[in-house]
Design a binder for these strands. Structure first.
Lengths: 268, 268
DNA sequence: GGATTGATCTCGTAC
DNA sequence: GTACGAGGTCAATCC
């Protein structure tokens, strides 16, 4: 269990002391504080005074969250060093990262709440279902879901500078490129497929090459583009495919996890 | 100033009470807790027991952060409803979102620390410098940075289904499409430019149309592709452009903010 | 609403 | 390290 200390309305001098020690021990720090923020690196930004949530993780990640919005207003994905320093009436937390060099500076003007947690334990596995990888593997095993007579030759086949999701031949022996999307396909997906089809064509001059975009839906304009390029669209239902073939899937998490998802999907 | 309450090692019954009231008052909640997480929506995920930081913002954003990594392991960008309920030996926080329908469930097994903050005030403006928008505007005012004799006709010109960053004519009267990137350009940027050039060509049959990709650098393979497509690359330095022309920029934040950035860039 | 694009995108992975 | 593509991408903007 994590060892936790809480402080409220901490004077800056005391906060400096607590933060210094917490950071040296690689503790997790959460502070609700008035602060200003400067960032300099790939971009630049300034944020005036206000109350925010400042988070420092044991691995050097720094996050500054405003009271609204999903994303942090400022952050540091990793830090080479995190330092705290008193000066000019505020407590400066300075995080520096190299490659690319980026400096995040949080000028803390007051600390309303401070939580320091050492030894935060979290070893559990995170399991994601139904990502594109998984949908692609199901379709590679069951190409009949796309078209009868389709034979799979390669999965993740390198073509040109990219990778074809599934490389097949149809019942008439024509090469078929399948591009899989687990969300609505847009124009980029169509152009991606087109690129692969063109690459295979150029490697096999004179051969007719088909391209199939497999997605749960497709944007209207993307469909028009797809048809004008002589490509094809097949609607798929990732959740249904999952329910139908889950037993064949080899997951990192094992079969019991797969069953727990199935119960959510309402299947038998 | 925000009104803050802190709790440590809170029994689940007490945590239930505190959380219920906090959520009804739209307070900001930060909890360090043992929990399990389930997510069901556009995708699906499961996370076993471990210690995490649970954040609920006044606007209904929910974040679950593990002790490592920049990104939340689970989240809800907005919630239609957030409910807490005791049952089965744990405290369930359930966030539901519509369009798309997504359900995030955090099963809290113990609460090590809990921070509730009401009226977290943060009205400050967030100012970003040197985003693509800004670099594009500078180049639109100073096309000579790309090529002598270039004349700008349109900025953000709709072409086909997309938008051309800068639409010019060169000294010989040929249309020039400029695509601006503030980071290393990859193959996608080249293809994006190609699309616009083709669209303009198709609208002006028989007219030679040039395409210039302006970026601080370009991936090796992207450069090969660009040349094979008959397009051009111009290196730009966003920071230098900024220093050279910042005085002309009309910013939301006004001139003083611009000056504060300049001091960082080391300019006069 | 849908569609398009940028992002300090982040993150994984293959070469 | 570079390059490439996925993402529960998010968020802004234009239509």
């Amino acid at each position: 269990m994590a060892r936790v200390r809480l402080y409220s309305s901490l004077p800056l001098e005391a906060a400096h002391h607590v933060l210094s020690e917490a950071l040296s021990r690689r503790a997790m720090v959460v502070a609700l504080c008035r602060c200003r923020v400067q960032y300099e690196g790939r971009g630049s930004s300034r944020l005036g005074e206000g109350e925010r949530l400042l988070i420092v993780k044991p691995d050097g990640v720094v996050l500054v969250h405003r009271p609204r919005g999903h994303q942090p207003v400022n952050w540091q994905p990793e830090s080479r060093s995190i330092e705290v320093r008193l000066g000019g009436g505020s407590l400066l937390l300075r995080s520096v990262r190299e490659r690319p060099r980026e400096v995040l500076e949080v000028y803390i003007d007051s600390v309303e709440a401070l939580v320091v947690a050492e030894d935060v334990r979290d070893e559990a596995e995170f399991i994601e279902y139904l990502d594109e990888h998984e949908v692609r593997d199901i379709l590679a095993r069951h190409p009949e879901e796309l078209e009868e007579g389709l034979r799979v030759l390669r999965v993740e086949k390198p073509v040109g500078q990219g990778y074809v999701d599934i490389f097949c031949v149809d019942r008439e022996g024509r090469p078929v490129i399948v591009e899989v999307k687990r969300v609505t396909a847009g124009r980029e997906a169509v152009l991606q497929l087109k690129r692969y089809v063109d690459a295979v064509k150029s490697e096999n001059p004179g051969v007719e090459v088909r391209g199939i975009l497999a997605a749960p839906s497709i944007a209207k304009e993307a469909l028009i583009l797809l048809r004008s390029l002589g490509l094809e669209y097949r609607r798929i239902d990732p959740a249904k495919l999952y329910k139908r073939y889950r037993s064949e899937l080899r997951r990192r998490g094992g079969g019991s996890s797969a069953r727990s998802l199935l119960s959510f999907l309402g299947g038998g």
